[in-house]
Design a protein around this nucleic acid. Structure first.
Length: 424
RNA sequence: GGAGAGGUAGCGAAGUUGGCCGUAACGCGCUCGACUCGAAAUCGAGUUAUCGGUUAAUAGCCGGUACGUGGGUUCGAAUCCCACCCUCUCCGCCA
């Protein structure tokens, strides 16, 4: 949620942000709703002041043993008016709240303005895509031929957009989880977490998935639970409603969890392979930062994601998301795109965002500076990394003419010394 | 699932014959000060959040609201009534 006071005082800031984001929301609508809310509030508060004063007098009269019945009669009428106005005020407040909850974060000043993903500037490239002297294959072909991936049986078990990995591929998936977590926990100071994979509505609202993106989620209406689309949701909400010590910042959590996404609206896109599934495993990093330090922490976290790709020797590039492509809760996002030779393109494998105080305000996560008033922390999240897309990249980049896959050296110890996946 | 107890500030904990009891006793923590070479201990002072009005002000001042959540009764609710959520203890069940 953005800062109510900011919009009230500088509506032009939000107007620009919405325009830059190609949003159809209009600030004028908000100002009208909020004006109505404030007018009603001022009215009802004046009446309540009257009532409180008079009630005090009733109490005083009764203590002295005097009669207060005439006064109580008048106050009955006043209370009825207050009750009616209270209902209207609550309605007006809910309307303001609803509008506000649907407003995306204001992009940071350093986020480039652009209309869509075609205008995301590239920051850097790392590694050199291999030259192949044979026709390259895509990862699902390679994985299926080697007996590790079975999309037909996955479809039989569940449906489209599910995957089944067996043998070396399942093992490699587990190796990736362990490698990613080890890097974050051993070298980067993250606290490893095993969170709930289902969460309640309040938690989904805290990070911004709800109320606006309900159709993207798998939900269990009988229980009121939602399956997490990313571990960002439970990890960020770990401190919901809390006031942290300033000394606790920055603080990082990471978790490997399944992620569940309905992929509504992506019909026909990436229908084959491991790129876009209803369920996938991802290691996620979440950081809580001091407001003065959060953009530095974003760079730090991008470094953590880059480290994984570089240790696996997978070529990638980093782009900055422009305003038109920026996620709902983010003020600034860097995407890491890994080279997929089978598709002859860079594909997103990590997204690292600084949400500044947007999620902290929704989830009420604050910290107490020394001698100062408590303030919202800044929250950051980044993939580090999804195992499916990493596996796809490993298969496509490591493929040999004979159909075998040379694994990244760093993973060999995690695979009990297996260096190459050989055709059967 | 059954029985019982409970949810009050950063934490613990008072307060339930309805009315100066919510800047909420008391304790801890935290901040400042005294003592000290310095520290501990001790002593003194301070320390809720949020919304609206006013304002250059996220400073003051005035007002509203908040005792798990949502309703109800009442001139007035932490206190009485109803529903729901959560925590703890015991029992049952279970990986």
């Amino acid at each position: 949620m953005i800062d109510l006071k900011l919009v009230q005082k500088n509506p032009e800031v939000l107007a620009k942000a919405l325009a830059d984001r190609q949003s159809s929301l209009r600030v004028e609508d908000f100002l009208a709703l909020d004006g109505r809310r404030r007018a009603l509030l001022a009215e009802v508060e004046a009446l309540k002041n009257q009532r409180n004063t008079a009630s005090g007098q009733v109490a005083a009269l009764k203590r002295e043993g005097k009669d207060a019945s005439h006064m109580m009669e008048e106050l009955g009428a006043l209370s009825d008016r207050i009750k009616a106005l209270d209902a209207q005020t609550a309605e007006a407040k809910a309307a303001v709240e609803e509008w506000l909850m649907g407003v995306p974060n204001i992009p940071d000043a350093t986020t480039p303005v652009g209309k869509d993903e075609s205008e995301n500037p590239e920051v850097l490239r790392w590694g050199t895509p291999r030259d192949f002297d044979f026709p390259v294959k895509e990862h699902w072909e390679l994985g299926t031929a080697l007996g590790g991936l079975d999309f037909e049986r996955a479809t039989r078990l569940a449906g489209s957009r599910f995957a089944l990995s067996l043998g070396w591929a399942a093992r490699l998936d587990r190796a990736l989880v362990n490698f990613f977590l080890d890097e974050h926990v051993r070298n980067e100071g993250y606290i490893e977490v095993c969170p709930p994979f289902m969460v309640n509505r309040a938690t989904m609202t805290g990070t911004g998935q709800l109320p606006k993106f309900e159709e993207d989620l798998f939900k269990m209406p009988d229980w009121g639970y939602y399956l997490i689309p990313t571990a960002e949701v439970p990890l960020t909400n770990i401190h919901a409603g809390e006031v942290l010590d300033e000394a606790d910042l920055p603080r990082g959590y990471c978790a490997a969890t399944p992620c569940f996404r309905s992929e509504a609206g992506s019909a026909g896109k990436d229908t084959r392979g491991l790129i876009r599934l209803h369920q996938f495993t991802k290691v996620e990093m979440v950081r809580f930062a001091h407001p003065d330090d959060s953009f530095h922490q974003l760079d730090v976290m991008v470094g953590h994601a880059r480290n994984l790709l570089e240790k696996m020797e997978l070529p990638y590039r980093v782009i900055t998301l422009c305003t038109g492509d920026l996620g709902f809760g983010s003020a600034k996002t860097f995407d890491l795109e890994v080279w997929l030779p089978g598709q002859n393109t860079y594909r997103e494998i990590s997204s690292c965002s600084n949400c500044v105080d947007f999620q902290a305000r929704r989830a009420d996560i604050r910290f107490k500076p020394k001698g100062g008033k408590s303030a919202y922390v800044h929250t950051l999240n980044g993939s580090g990394l999804p195992t499916g897309r990493a596996l796809a990249a490993i298969l496509e980049n490591g493929q040999q003419k004979d159909g075998s896959i040379v694994l990244p050296k760093v993973l060999v110890p995690y695979m009990d010394g297996v260096e190459v996946i050989e055709p059967r």
